[in-house]
Amino acid sequence: METKYIDIHSQLIDECRNGSSKAQFEIYKLYYKAMYNTCLRFVKNPMEAEDVMQEAFLAAFRNIDSFRGEVSFGSWLKRIVVNRSLDVLKKKSLDLEPLEEGRTIIDTDDDRDYEANYKVEQVKKAIALLPDSYRVLLTLHLFEGYDHEEIAQIMEMSNAAVRTGYSRARKRLQELLETKKFEIWMS
């Protein structure tokens, strides 16, 4: 089944190379959801996320010749989506310098036994509450699986800056997740 799945895609991708708009729309239908959710985590605004996502698809089709299969088509496309999302944030003058550590933990909650669904919502909302710079760093690693070096390259930051920024962002997220106050916002 796994092989068949890949075959279907590579055939579609080949058709995209020949400029078949039917194949391009098929690819869109296969990947839009994952790409849209990635966009949304970065740019937050649904209209903007859709626009970034669709433009990323068009750019991918225009430059499909530069896709040579070193990585999966999904990761290749994802990288375009990530870069375009970050461009949008940069245009809005995203503060790439990690924020100063200013907030403190108010209360911790030891009861971690949540339903997965509930926990997912918690993580989602907590991440959405983070400032742009923190959210981007965390999302690139936790959701998109880029390591610190790759993030440094994508964000045009030094490795050290990524490491410090990331650990601050991670700490802040943990605080948000563990804060009782936050749980009240959740309900």
């Binding site: 708009s21 729309f25 959710n37 859709e50 669709q54």
Partner: peptide, 17 residues
């Protein structure tokens, strides 16, 4: 990854395409 783009995104994409 549960969010969906707003209704009509397929048509909007087809137009752009």
């Amino acid at each position: 990854d549960t969010s969906e783009p707003m209704d009509g995104h397929f048509d909007r994409f087809l137009q752009k395409l």
